[in-house]
Simulated assay, not measured.
Amino acid sequence: MQVISAPDGWPLWVSPVRPGREHDTTCARAHGLVDDLNRLAATLGIPTLTDLGYENAGEGLRHPVKKPKGGELTEPEKAFNAVIRGVHGVAERANALLKVTFKALRQVASTLLEHGRTA
Rank of each mutant, 00 (worst) to 15 (best):
A6T: 12
A41I: 01
V100M: 06
S110K: 15
P47H: 04
I46K: 13
V14T: 08
P7V: 09
D24C: 00
V17T: 15
I84S: 00
K78P: 01
L40M: 11
L52V: 10
L37Y: 06
E92S: 11
L44V: 05
E72H: 15
S110A: 14
N81F: 10
N38C: 04
P7G: 07
D24M: 03
L112E: 01
E92T: 11
A57T: 13
Q107T: 15
G20D: 00
R85K: 14
D8V: 06
Q107M: 13
W10F: 15
D35P: 03
N56R: 15
E22V: 13
T43E: 01
T74C: 06
R117M: 14
I4F: 03
A30I: 05
K78Y: 06
A57Y: 01
E92C: 12
G70P: 08
T118F: 07
G20A: 12
H63C: 12
F102M: 10
I46E: 05
V14S: 03
T101W: 07
T74G: 10
D35L: 08
G60S: 03
R62Q: 13
A6C: 10
E114S: 13
R85C: 08
A57F: 05
E114V: 07
L52K: 15
L12Y: 03
A79H: 14
G32M: 07
D8R: 09
L61R: 01
R117W: 05
N38Y: 02
H63N: 14
L37H: 03
A119H: 15
H63T: 13
E59R: 14
P11H: 06
R117E: 15
V3P: 04
K103G: 12
R93N: 14
E22H: 07
P19F: 13
V65N: 03
E114I: 08
K67A: 08
R39D: 05
E72W: 07
N38I: 05
V83E: 14
D35H: 13
V3Y: 02
F102P: 04
P47N: 00
E114Y: 13
V90N: 00
A41M: 07
A57S: 15
A104C: 03
I84W: 08
R39E: 00
T43G: 00
G20L: 00
R93A: 05
H31N: 14
E75V: 08
P68A: 10
A28V: 02
R62F: 09
G32F: 06
K78N: 06
E75S: 05
L97V: 14
T101Q: 11
E114K: 15
R93V: 02
W10Q: 10
H115D: 05
A119M: 10
Q107I: 07
P47L: 04
V34A: 02
A30F: 01
A109D: 08
A91R: 15
V65R: 11
A6L: 07
T50H: 04
L98E: 06
V34L: 06
Y54R: 07
P47R: 06
T101L: 12
V100C: 12
P64T: 04
G53P: 01
L105H: 08
E75K: 15
K66H: 04
H88P: 01
G53A: 01
R62C: 11
Q2T: 09
E72G: 10
H88C: 09
V83G: 10
L40V: 04
K99M: 03
R106G: 02
A57P: 04
